[in-house]
Design a protein around this nucleic acid. Structure first.
Length: 138
DNA sequence: GCCAACGTTGGC
DNA sequence: GCCAACGTTGGC
């Protein structure tokens, strides 16, 4: 089981949009590091859903329901997408400010490499954020 | 293969 | 809206 963090601008696609749609393909990624992370995802892996620009907070958890396959939004075989489904909303969102204020999370990719749209999260980081959000996994 | 120019992301 | 960070492109 691996953990990830995926960013989306909520005015384009929010966590609530995903809840409404029940399942969505995560396409349009055009960055090699992010792409490599998506290729490494396994069915059943969990990812935080982060709202960039507006909110700047982790609002929920999604589950990878389909592993990497060719991105239908391009003919370039270099790019892939995955399918995600909502797993659980956090009881309390965890903001970027909160994350930066927590020394245990100082090495998170979200902080260190703010532009990376799909990043990996360690088990320790994942659990720490769950704790901060006062959320227990169902 | 280096590096300058340029484009994009995202926090502030 | 600005700008820093950083990835990509293309000339040499």
């Amino acid at each position: 089981m691996n953990y990830w963090l995926m960013k989306s601008e909520p005015d384009v696609f929010s966590y609530d949009d995903l809840v409404k749609k029940k399942r969505e393909l995560w396409d349009g990624v055009r960055n090699y590091t992010a792409r490599n992370n998506m290729r490494a995802m396994k069915k059943g892996d969990l990812a935080f859903f982060y709202h960039s620009n507006i909110g700047k907070e982790i609002v929920g958890i999604v589950k990878i329901v389909k592993e990497a396959y060719p991105d239908p939004t391009t003919n370039d075989a270099a790019w892939v997408c995955v399918d995600v489904a909502p797993k659980q909303k956090l009881k309390n969102p965890v903001s970027l400010v909160d994350i930066k204020a927590n020394p245990k999370l100082a090495n998170m990719k979200l902080v260190k490499q703010s532009r990376l749209s799909v990043s990996d999260v360690t088990k320790e980081e994942f659990e720490e954020i769950l704790k901060m959000s006062q959320t227990s996994l169902k």
